[in-house]
């Protein structure tokens, strides 16, 4: 056979360009030359294994390609072959080359499996009553609950759509795959479940970012992420009324046990506590727990510490045989 006749052979073909360096035909893959075209169907000039985009084209006849049908959600389709909601990882796929007018959420999409393995849009089917009813419920962020005749693909699409709608309201970015993790459950339970799920995802992100930040500091690198402001907790809002409770918590976490406290007026609090078997009495600011009189001899440096750090100071004094109790 004369192989040289294949070299430099030129031809034209309509292919779907779906991004990346290659476009796929029925039985081959060609490298797409720069400048690369927009995503969609294009007529390509193919020479050897290199293709150059000539012009956009309408979708060719896709009838010979495997068909996939399902419910649309944010550019993805939940396949109607879905039977068990646990299969959602495999049965949720993006659909490429969607029409300029985006299909309505939960509409029934027909797609074809392109040679690259991607799904490309083919057409929309007519909605049934169940899709229209579901769409109305979605607008109100209501659960599907026990609604009859809901196929598994619609239930998953509904859960994803509802979760993403709630994420939008909360201004928390969420992808379809992330939303799909709890999709069917959220379809059953509605907005409250979606809100809890989205918030939990955001919390995990913040925690992961925080871990990376601390790791960067420990390793001597400048952290990339800014510090995230912490939510206000009860003990972060000090009042004279909760001074006793805050003092008790501050001592307890440092293995000290509060015995009593009393308000001395002028915003001062006297705190008696036991630590390492010994009894101590300190005077602190009732709001900040700033120490005025530690009750141990600190050479006048009492005000450098707070009730929270005082047990550590006392432990050091005990361990270095320097403890002198000045207030009883």
């Amino acid at each position: 056979m004369d192989y040289t006749k294949f070299l430099g052979k030129k031809e034209e073909a309509v292919l779907a360009y779906l991004g990346g360096p290659f476009a796929h035909g029925k039985d081959r893959r060609v490298r797409v030359d720069a400048p690369r075209p927009s995503l969609g169907f294009h007529r390509f000039a193919i020479e050897g294994r290199v293709a150059r985009a000539l012009a956009p084209e309408e979708s060719p006849d896709l009838a010979d390609l495997p068909r996939v049908r399902g419910h649309h959600v944010r550019g993805w389709v939940t396949r109607s072959s879905l039977r068990d909601r646990r299969e959602h990882v495999q049965d949720l796929e993006p659909v490429r080359v969607l029409p300029a007018e985006e299909p309505a959420p939960l509409s029934i999409v027909r797609a074809r499996r392109w040679h690259s393995g991607d799904l490309v849009f083919e057409s929309l089917d007519f909605d049934g009553d169940v899709e229209e009813t579901a769409r109305l419920r979605l607008e109100k962020l209501e659960p599907l609950g026990e609604m009859k005749g809901v196929p598994a693909s619609l239930r998953l699409a509904y859960g994803v759509a509802l979760t993403l709608a709630v994420a939008d309201k909360l201004a928390i970015p969420l992808s379809v795959r992330e939303a799909a993790a709890a999709g069917p459950r959220i379809a059953d339970d509605g907005e409250a479940a979606a809100r809890a799920f989205v918030t939990a995802v955001e919390t995990r992100r913040v925690e992961a970012s925080e871990r990376a930040r601390i790791r960067a500091i420990v390793e001597g690198r400048r952290p990339r992420e800014p510090v995230v402001a912490r939510p206000v907790r009860h003990r972060d809002a000090p009042t004279l009324d909760n001074a006793h409770l805050r003092a008790e918590i501050a001592l307890d976490v440092a293995h000290a046990r509060m015995l009593s406290s009393r308000n001395l007026g002028n915003g001062n609090l006297e705190v008696a506590f036991e630590f390492m078997g010994e009894r101590f009495t300190s005077v602190v600011d009732a709001l900040s727990l700033h120490v005025y009189d530690s009750g141990v001899c600190l050479a006048g440096a009492d005000e450098l510490v707070t009730l929270e750090s005082l047990p550590g100071v006392i432990r050091e004094a005990i361990e270095t045989d320097a403890l002198v109790i000045t207030r009883r």
Binding site: I214, H290, L304, T306, S309
Partner: peptide
């Protein structure tokens, strides 16, 4: 872990997820 920092006569907690 929780890091408690005392500075300027004030203390504050900072959670350390390590």
């Amino acid at each position: 872990a929780v890091l408690n920092i005392t500075y300027g006569g004030l203390s504050a907690d900072y959670p350390l997820d390590v």
